[in-house]
C-alpha cells in the first residue's frame, strides 16, 4: 500500500528565509512518527504546509493518494488531516462540549448538530474530560486544554493526526496520562506525526523518527539509531561535542 502522507521536494520560503528546503518524507499508515529538531528547524512550518495553512513554495504533498498541495485548511481537515496546536486554540467562550461538537460537525462525519454532540461526548469520555463538558473552554487548566485539543482532533475522525507539542508545559504525572492517551489513539489505527522536544516522549512512543535542521531533513530512522546519529548530535549539541564523542557515528 502506498504511504498515507508523502512529501516530495517540499520547500517553503518566508521572504529570504527558507523554512523548509526540499523535504522528502513518507509516512506509512498506522505509523507513529516523531518529528524532532532544534528550535526554528521548521517543524511547525512542515505541519502548516501539510494542513494548508501555508502553501508549499515548491514541491508536492500527497495525502491518501490525492494531491493536497494547494488545499485550504478546511479542505485538508475534511479529508482527514487533524492537528493540535503548539499554543492551544480553543473557542474560549464556548463550552468544552461545544468545542468538540464543532470539530465533529465541520471536520468529521456528523450530519446534524445532535449527532455531532453525541460523537463529541464519546471523544470527551475517551480523553477523560466528560466531567468538564459544560465548563467554558477558556476556564480549563493547561493540561485539560491539551486534552481538549486531542478530543477535537479525534472528533474529526482523522486518518492522520499531527500533534504539535501536546506535552509541552505538562508536569510528570500529566505527561504520563497524555502518553497513555496518545498510545490509545495510535491503537485505534490513527496515523500520528508527533512534534516534540522531550526525547522521553519521542523515544517511548515513536516507531520512527525524522530530524529536521535548518529546514532540511538530516536523518530518519529507528529511535535507537537516531540518538547515535552524528549529524543529529551535532545539530542539537554542536560540532565540538559531536567530535568529542568518537563512539557516536
Amino acid at each position: 500500500m502506498s504511504a498515507l502522507l508523502e512529501l516530495a521536494g517540499v520547500s517553503r520560503a518566508f521572504g529570504g528565509l527558507r523554512a523548509l528546503s526540499s523535504v522528502d518524507l513518507a509516512v506509512q499508515r498506522g505509523e507513529v512518527v516523531g518529528l524532532i529538531g532544534p528550535n526554528g528547524a521548521g517543524k511547525t512550518t512542515l505541519v502548516n504546509v501539510v494542513t494548508g495553512v501555508h502553501r508549499a513554495t515548491s514541491g508536492r504533498v500527497r495525502f491518501d493518494g490525492e494531491d493536497v498541495t494547494r488545499l485550504r485548511p478546511y479542505q485538508a481537515a475534511r479529508r482527514g488531516i487533524a492537528r493540535t496546536f503548539q499554543i492551544v486554540q480553543p473557542f474560549s467562550a464556548m463550552t468544552v462540549l461545544e468545542n468538540v461538537t464543532a470539530a465533529a460537525l465541520f471536520g468529521g462525519a456528523a450530519r446534524s448538530i445532535a449527532e455531532a454532540r453525541a460523537q463529541a461526548r464519546e471523544q470527551l469520555a475517551f480523553v477523560g474530560l466528560e466531567q468538564a463538558a459544560d465548563r467554558r473552554a477558556g476556564a480549563l487548566t493547561l493540561a485539560m486544554r491539551k486534552r481538549l485539543e486531542l478530543a477535537k482532533g479525534l472528533a474529526m475522525r482523522p486518518k492522520l493526526l499531527l500533534l504539535d507539542e501536546v506535552n509541552a508545559g505538562l508536569n510528570a504525572v500529566e505527561m504520563d496520562a497524555a502518553l497513555a492517551l496518545i498510545r490509545g489513539i495510535a491503537a485505534r489505527g490513527v496515523t500520528i506525526v508527533i512534534i516534540e522536544h522531550l526525547m522521553k516522549v519521542v523515544l517511548s512512543l515513536c516507531s520512527r523518527i525524522v530530524v529536521l535542521h535548518h529546514g532540511e531533513l538530516i536523518a530518519a530512522g529507528k529511535p535507537s539509531e537516531i540518538v547515535k546519529d552524528a549529524r543529529v548530535v551535532q545539530a542539537y549539541l554542536g560540532r565540538r561535542y559531536a567530535e568529542a564523542q568518537p563512539a557516536h557515528g
Binding site: 485548511p73 481537515a77 475534511r78 486554540q89 473557542f91 474560549s92 464543532a102 471536520g107 474529526m156
Partner: peptide, 13 residues
C-alpha cells in the same frame, strides 16, 4: 471566536 482554528476544524470560513 477564532477564525484560523475554525478553518482548521473544517469550517469553510
Amino acid at each position: 471566536q477564532n477564525e484560523s482554528a475554525a478553518d482548521m476544524l473544517g469550517v469553510n470560513t
